[in-house]
Amino acid sequence: MPDPMKIRANLVGDSTEVKVLMSHEMDTGLAKDSSGKIIPAWFIQTVTVLHNDKRVLYAQWGTAVSKNPFMSFRFKGGAKGDKVTITWVDNHNETRTDSAIVG
């Protein structure tokens, strides 16, 4: 089971600002280990963000995204107490879903 995400969601004016840290190796498939063997690619492929039940962000990621990725974005609307739910799925089909309350 992958480690939990760290999510912050706060109202900024008429938008909600979401900041999320994900725990993931994000191996590019280009690096080699100490014995010279290629470390296979292992990375987050899709990220979905729901505001309550409505999808506000869907992203397709590749190997150019860093290890332990940090993502920050805003969406219009949102109110204190609303729920923001984030899901990522990687190329091993491992997935993790966490949520936070807008503050």
Partner: peptide
């Protein structure tokens, strides 16, 4: 720019 985005927080949680 990375304020609030220090991945050390993932280590803190663990």
């Amino acid at each position: 720019d990375l304020q609030g985005g220090n991945p050390a927080e993932l280590w803190e949680a663990r």
